[in-house]
């Protein structure tokens, strides 16, 4: 079973095989959690969405067509749709989630700076409209190609490009504003 492709496992899930379903979750639960967490900006919502996404995989496995898409594309689509619909806390970046990201700095000061920068980026991403956020997450964090990410979001490549450029521009502006604030504070010291 471990050597089975995702698509074979989904076919077995469609026939009600719980072991195949468990195997799929073992492989892809981390993907579902991290995408949901980045798009919603919240760990608790991400956990709910990841569970819900796999329940949908279980109930809809029969409608999955391996000729049309890979399993991961289908899963990305389920997760991002759920995460985009989740609008309870769209403008709030989860502080715990920000702290969970590994910082690269060697000393405490650079760790604090890295964490602060991470928070600023998280806040900037969290303030993006949900679809722009999803575009940035799929392309940059998940490393999907423009075509794959557009397919996940069920958009034309042109429309995806437009989402991505606006998302990047907004995050870049937020980072620049933060750098100017930090730079100004340093100059004042």
């Amino acid at each position: 079973m471990e050597n089975d492709t995702d698509e074979n496992l989904v076919a077995q899930v469609a026939a009600g095989d719980r072991r195949s379903f468990r195997c799929l979750m073992e492989r892809h639960m981390p993907l579902a959690i991290r995408v949901a967490q980045r798009v919603t900006g919240n760990t608790a919502d991400a956990d709910d969405i990841a569970q819900e996404a796999f329940l949908r995989v279980w109930t809809r496995a029969g409608s999955f067509d391996p000729a049309r898409a890979r399993f991961t594309t289908w899963l990305y689509r389920i997760v991002t749709n759920l995460a985009i619909d989740q609008r309870r806390r769209p403008l709030h970046a989860d502080i715990d989630a920000a702290a969970e990201v590994a910082d690269g700095g060697p000393g405490p000061l650079s760790q604090i700076e890295a964490r602060e920068q991470r928070r600023a980026v998280d806040a900037a991403i969290a303030s993006l409209p949900a679809r722009q956020r999803a575009a940035v997450v799929l392309f940059h964090m998940e490393g999907l190609s423009g075509r794959e990410a557009a397919a996940v979001l069920e958009l034309s490549e042109k429309a995806f490009e437009s989402l991505l450029i606006r998302g990047r521009a907004a995050v870049k502006a937020a980072c620049r504003a933060r750098d100017e604030t930090v730079g100004g504070a340093r100059d004042a010291r």
Binding site: M25, E26, M29, P30, I33, R34, Q37, R38, T43, D47, A97, E100, V101, A102, Q117, R118, V121, I125, V136, H140, M141, G143, R168, V171, C175
Partner: peptide, 14 residues
Amino acid sequence: VLAEAPVVTRRRAD
């Protein structure tokens, strides 16, 4: 910066 992913532990996923 954008590529950085949140840490998801195996325990949380399980």
